[in-house]
Each structure stands twice: as C-alpha cells, then as structure tokens.
C-alpha cells in the first residue's frame, strides 16, 4: 500500500470552512519515459480522486499525465456534522487506495 499524508482537523464548529490536504505517494509515470533498456515505461498515473463526507461525494478530481509525482490536493469543505471523511485514489491499473479520517463537529 502506498503512503498517504492526510490532514483533516480533528474538531470543527458547525458551519466552519475546513481545509483538507492530501498527498499520495505515487510515481505518476507518464508513459512517455524510456527506461534503461530503451523501452517506454507503461503509463501508470492516478486517474481519479474522490472525497466523500458521510457517504456523499463532496470533491472529486480527474488527474492527467502532466501532474507531478506524489500528487498533492488541497480543498475546503463546510463542516456540517460529525462523521467519516473518505479519500480514494484510483490508478491506471484499476487499483484503488482508500483512506479515512474522522471529524468531530460541535
């Protein structure tokens, strides 16, 4: 499993705008780069990122080969209720990595 850095405030007030930061360890191989034997390294990038808040998709992104390795995504949410925020990254091989964070809204 690849490493992921997720920054979600543990607590927030109801209605507060919170900043979420995520970074996944991933090479974002473009498919244009030759390896040592001269053959092209097959493309392997994160294609899709989805963030759900209590089961509802609140932020998603399509990623493309020009995006750097270890893609860093930062966005804001409105804290509505206590719950689980889920992050999922899907790559070209169809593998999906899921990470979760809990938030307490008072």
């Amino acid at each position: 499993m690849a490493r992921a850095l997720i920054n979600v405030p543990a607590k927030a007030k109801k209605g507060e705008i919170i900043e979420i930061k995520t970074m996944l360890s991933h090479p974002m191989e473009t498919g244009f780069r030759p390896s040592d034997d001269g053959k092209l390294v097959p493309r392997n990038i994160i294609k899709r990122f989805v963030c759900t808040y209590d089961g509802e998709a609140v932020f998603s992104a399509d990623l493309f080969p020009a995006i750097s390795a270890n893609p860093f995504l930062s966005f804001t949410l409105v804290a509505t209720n206590s719950g689980v925020i889920t992050f999922s990254w899907t790559d070209d091989n169809g593998q999906t990595q899921v990470q979760t964070a809990k938030i307490e809204v008072a």
Partner: peptide
C-alpha cells in the same frame, strides 16, 4: 509537513 513530499519518505 502536510505538503512536504519528503514526509512520505519519512513514513516509509
């Protein structure tokens, strides 16, 4: 530390 990609290596 939330945006420093070096921290991924630290986790490893």
């Amino acid at each position: 530390d939330a945006s420093n990609p070096g921290m991924l290596a630290v986790l490893d």
